[in-house]
Design a protein around this nucleic acid. Structure first.
Lengths: 262, 262
DNA sequence: CGGCAGATTGAATCTAAAA
DNA sequence: GTTTTAGATTCAATCTGCC
């Protein structure tokens, strides 16, 4: 039976409380810190100013942690990934979203934290702005790492090296940098069935939704109160949907799936 | 009228002889140096041993320059890219192929050489080996840089952020790491019509073929005698094809397109 | 000329045996 | 114990040939 837990708080503060060797996949989307190339660009804009186009009207909350320069970003992310490695079992995988500018810093953080870098999976977003006199920026990137040799699955799996999907739009969009659930579901298959997925930057909780839909358990961490609330709502809904779809076998303890705050 | 020139020799030796500010696009595929994760793996295998599957029988020649460790690879590539920047006009572009392992080192070399990093274009190869219990490696990467602000084209162009194409197979395949001409033709559109394309690692000359087919001039450098011969043959053939397809306007001087050795 | 079936092969990776 | 070599493995887009 899949369960979920969401901790309120900062990733670096909460991760040490998570049990060593309890996680099979870390799947997360840290703040990219790449909105501006200069100090002024990074410092003066709000998160929404960087990511939301001026002609669009959105009601999305700001999120913090997006104002570091590249060196301190790599260092901070490495500290987070060190803790993630500790919580993960030997053979577990790490999947981190990043944009093109942060691929090198993210690969440094990943390897510096002790993960083995195994590849890059481009995420192709078909709906993006054209760019005059240049190449369209229609991809983000997912860096794949593993804790030692990856699991050998009982039932062999073969996963795609390129994923495709448009960002949620309209009322489905709860967070500025929200990822499509279909993409996350495909990625989650690297976690053994029934295993546990960790997301230290849960945001609007799409990773957790995808994990529950795929029959994996979920542990999340989210600093912003507003997004933690959104996540709890979406996870409860996803779990209810999975349970109602399930065959006529009732879970032994429905409370098992209740949210646990830190 | 498109012309082409192929210099025999090492990129670092030949590039200084190329005129400053004469190039509109540098499009190249350096040796990736990523065949092995360890010194021994890199040093002891031949190029073909690394890249050609054991069950396949090929008649392709080896190529040198694929035995550096990552630091010296980045340094060496930077020296090459510094010279490329000098030969290029303000607004010119740089496109460098690399595999996932060398993306960080290549971006360091590109920026260290003075180019402005503008993006990553994944190249999706539909025919790749599957990987058990993991994500297939079905992409290589093209890093895009520019000499200052990119050209503002008289006729605006909009280029893709993701390219797709299978490697040449069978008798069309002249080099182990040969790139498909259709992909190169698409990339070459970032060079203004009639401009000049430079490839310091010409290999079997696909970049030059694509340039001529798109009506751009080509300057290449190739160290291995065998591949230089292959390139000259293919370029002469491509140019002949373009000229016979052209409208009934004869070139003023057919010799204009003759190969010029260093 | 079109459609279908079977063969081929890839900038590889992992495991196990051998030196 | 450590390093090196040999062999097996695998999916899907092309290619080939046959009907």
């Amino acid at each position: 039976m899949s369960t979920w837990t969401l901790h309120d708080g900062d990733a670096l503060a909460v991760l040490p409380t998570i049990e060593t060797g309890s996680v099979d996949l870390v799947l997360t989307d840290p703040p990219y810190n790449s909105g501006g190339r200069t100090n002024t660009e990074r410092g003066l804009q709000t998160t929404r100013g960087k990511y939301v186009s001026s002609d669009a009207v959105h009601q999305l909350a700001d999120f913090p942690g997006d104002n570091r320069d590249q060196r301190s970003y790599a260092y901070w992310l490495m500290l987070v990934l060190v803790e993630c490695l500790r919580t993960s079992r030997a053979g577990a995988s790490l999947l981190v979203f990043t944009d093109f500018r942060q691929v090198p810093a993210t690969s440094d953080a990943l390897q510096g934290a002790g993960w083995t870098w195994r590849g890059i999976i481009p995420w192709h977003k078909p709906i993006t702005r054209p760019q005059r006199d240049g190449f369209r920026r229609e991809c983000e990137y997912i860096l794949w790492g593993s804790n030692g040799q990856p699991y050998r699955h009982a039932e062999p799996i073969y996963l795609p090296g390129l994923v495709k999907g448009s960002q949620p739009r309209g009322t489905n969009r709860k967070h500025i940098t929200q990822k499509p659930v279909e993409v996350l579901r495909e990625l989650i298959r690297v976690c053994p069935p029934g295993g546990t997925v960790l997301d230290p930057f849960a945001g609007a909780g799409s990773t957790g939704v995808a994990a529950l839909l795929e029959g994996r358990s979920f542990v999340g961490v989210e600093l912003t109160r507003h997004y933690a609330d959104v996540t709890r709502e979406r996870l409860a809904e996803a779990l209810a949907g999975v349970q109602s779809d399930a065959p006529a076998v009732l879970p032994e303890s429905p409370q098992e799936a209740a949210p646990t705050a830190l």
